[in-house]
């Protein structure tokens, strides 16, 4: 679990996860598009994320595709968030989202 927290403690790596969350199954080229990071840096970050099991890669034809793997995050949730707290947290999160968007 140390690896998961270390991997998440970097904003570039979190933004790569965000990109996969927005669109799962991207190639390295697609992930590099529009980023202010070298291809080499992206490759290094992806390796750390894969090592922490936060992403999984699969070969599809000639392409290597990257997928967000939420299993370790799910396990963290199972460990520290009890069932009865879940609905309260969801409600608080929704309230925060609405207030921050300022559109409600």
């Amino acid at each position: 679990m140390d690896e998961v927290f270390k991997a998440l403690a970097d904003s570039s790596r979190r933004s790569l996860l965000d990109r996969l969350h927005a669109r799962n199954g991207q190639t390295l080229n697609e992930l590099c598009e529009g980023l202010a990071m070298t291809r080499q840096a992206v490759t290094k970050h992806l390796a750390i994320l894969e090592e922490a099991n936060l992403i999984t890669t699969i070969r599809h034809g000639r392409e290597k595709l990257h997928y967000l793997n939420p299993v370790p995050i799910h396990q963290i949730g199972e460990r520290w968030i009890r069932k009865f707290e879940r609905s309260k947290l969801a409600a608080l999160n929704e309230l925060k989202r609405q207030l921050e968007n300022g559109d409600e």
Partner: peptide
């Protein structure tokens, strides 16, 4: 081959 993975999960 015509089927593309849309969701992939790994667990140890």
């Amino acid at each position: 081959d015509q089927f593309k993975p849309l969701t992939v999960y790994t667990i140890y």
